[in-house]
Amino acid sequence: MSTGIDIVLLAGFLGAGKTTVLNELIRLFHDRKLGMLVNDFGEVPVDGSLLKNENPELLEEGHKIYEIGNGSIFCSCLKAPFLYGLKYFEKEKPDLLFIEASGLSDPSSMNKILKEHHLDDQFSIKHVVTLIDPIRYKALITVLEVIGRQISSADQILINKVDLISQKDLEELIHDLKLRSSAPFQTGSFGQFDYSFIDDETTQVMDEDRESCNTPESRPGSLFLEGTLESEQVLKDFMGRVESGIYRLKGFLELEGKTFYVSDNTKGYSMTETAKPGIKPGLTVLCPLGNEKNIARLWREIQGASL
């Protein structure tokens, strides 16, 4: 039996579907007191607002959301905010604490952090669940160390978006994952998986001495694009010019008097009309280091063209 507050850590590369999965977990475990620590890489956290919009009853029913932006919680640059978040939930005492790590987070050092700060009696890492984006996996697994770390740390692997790939590509992906991890895996789409493992009595055992590969030096480029656009066509033109040079883009934009959640995906981008998010509208972009100025320039150009 585990002791302390049970943690289910959601890892996975940018755009793999962690927020969609978290929404599903909230729905399934709604009868318990839940805590959600949401870690967004951009300076303006987006995922917390999405959760509140998708689950308006969350705060009314006593569930708690704690947001941390501007980096990875496993990097030394965000260690203090992460500890403040854990202390907050230590007082709130949820039955289950879901931690949605940013897409570039390496969870390897989670257990080490708890032990070093004497929180291992208060919290227990029950599961590390890693989501896989099968579209981007092949291109990024060999160039981004963090993806391999997310896989090797997991005790459950969820391959999302399988509706977007062929059976042959899926078989090749599964073969590669089996070489990297002995964790059980599931395949699914839109965050639909069998989550009965959450209630397993087993507790994830993690290396107590492993250091995270998240460091200030390993941070990718990051910028926040403010302003309004005249129409969706202008946004489409912008995305067509930058999508090959970014890791992730998401945020809220006001177009033609309406508010939309905008997110890049593996085949273009999506727009979903939503309530006003309560945060500054704009787009958070993560990109290879050094590409920020080029993206900012294109954004200014596209805004000027829409005026």
Rank of each mutant, 00 (worst) to 15 (best):
E90N: 07
F185Y: 13
G62R: 08
L253I: 13
L37Y: 12
A305V: 05
V21L: 08
L140V: 14
F123V: 02
V38L: 01
T187K: 03
L25A: 07
L96C: 04
G282C: 05
L249A: 15
P281K: 14
L164G: 14
T274N: 09
L177W: 00
G278I: 13
I151H: 12
C287K: 02
Q150M: 05
T259P: 02
E256C: 03
T259N: 15
F238G: 06
W299M: 02
I7M: 13
N111K: 08
E301P: 11
N214M: 13
S181C: 04
F98Y: 11
P134R: 05
R32D: 11
E67P: 02
T130F: 05
S306I: 08
H63K: 05
P220C: 10
L14A: 06
V38G: 03
H127L: 11
K293V: 10
K87V: 15
E57K: 07
S270A: 11
A154I: 02
Q150V: 00
E116F: 09
D163Y: 01
G278P: 09
G245D: 14
F123S: 09
L119Y: 09
G69E: 03
I99S: 01
V129E: 08
I151K: 13
L283W: 03
I198V: 14
V38A: 03
E67V: 12
S49E: 10
F29Q: 15
F193A: 00
E243R: 15
V38R: 04
P220S: 07
G240Y: 04
F123N: 06
I279D: 09
T130C: 05
L34I: 01
H118F: 02
I113T: 12
N265I: 03
S166D: 05
L104A: 15
I5Y: 01
E100T: 15
F89C: 09
E211N: 07
